[in-house]
């Protein structure tokens, strides 16, 4: 059993930061929330604004999950990668350019993934958040490899998302969204 006595709820416009030592289940919990793992015991429910419970399919279409891995292919350019992500998400392709500008990777658009630094690859992964408006953001160690300016940008983008009624659940070893509620997982694992 990974979790015992774990209970929390997060409202629209709020954020929850999962903290805890390595192996405490932060990523596992995020993957359960994303629907990529199934909890064998317990209950996980998502509610829409009118308090109606949403289905798993609707949840999948309502969430962005940015995991450890950056979903960048070495032989695809940044622009091709984001266009592919837009197509898979069902997002408008015209938002690729604005997403690249938001994350300051527009000048890297024609570079293949193989030539990107770890921080640049991370920015490409985070740019997915800007491709389509989805109310739930699930972020696994979002600060990894990011420099100070991009961290500030991430905080701004997250603040805008929450101000618009979005919800964020993030796992982080570093201080992230200081005004957000925290859930320490080591105590439950």
């Amino acid at each position: 059993m990974v979790f015992r006595g774990l209970s929390f709820d997060v409202d629209a416009g709020n954020a929850l930061v999962l903290v805890g030592p390595n192996g405490s289940g932060k990523t596992t919990l995020l993957r359960i929330l994303a629907g990529l793992l199934t909890a064998t015991i317990g209950r996980l429910q998502f509610f829409s604004d009118d308090r109606a419970q949403v289905s798993d399919d609707t949840r999948d279409q309502s969430a962005h999950f940015v995991a450890h891995s950056d979903t960048v292919k070495s032989s695809l350019t940044v622009k091709e990668t984001l266009r592919f992500h837009a197509d898979i998400l069902g997002a408008d392709r015209t938002r690729v350019q604005s997403a690249m500008e938001t994350w300051d990777i527009a000048r890297l658009g024609d570079l293949p993934g193989a030539l990107l630094s770890a921080g640049q690859r991370r920015r490409v992964a985070l740019a997915r958040l800007s491709l389509q408006d989805r109310p739930i953001w699930l972020l696994d160690e979002p600060l990894i490899a990011l420099d100070r300016s991009v961290r500030a940008r991430l905080h701004d983008v997250c603040a805008d998302h929450r101000a618009a009624g979005g919800l964020i659940v993030a796992a982080s070893h570093e201080p992230f969204l200081e005004d957000a509620a925290t859930l320490e997982l080591g105590a439950h694992a």
């Binding site: 994303a34 399919d57 999948d60 450890h68 891995s69 292919k73």
Partner: peptide, 17 residues
């Protein structure tokens, strides 16, 4: 395998496809 390793498979699993 590459899609599994770089997380693209997660993206596909969460997509409408």
């Amino acid at each position: 395998e590459p899609d599994l390793q770089d997380g693209t498979l997660d993206l596909l699993r969460m997509s409408a496809l």
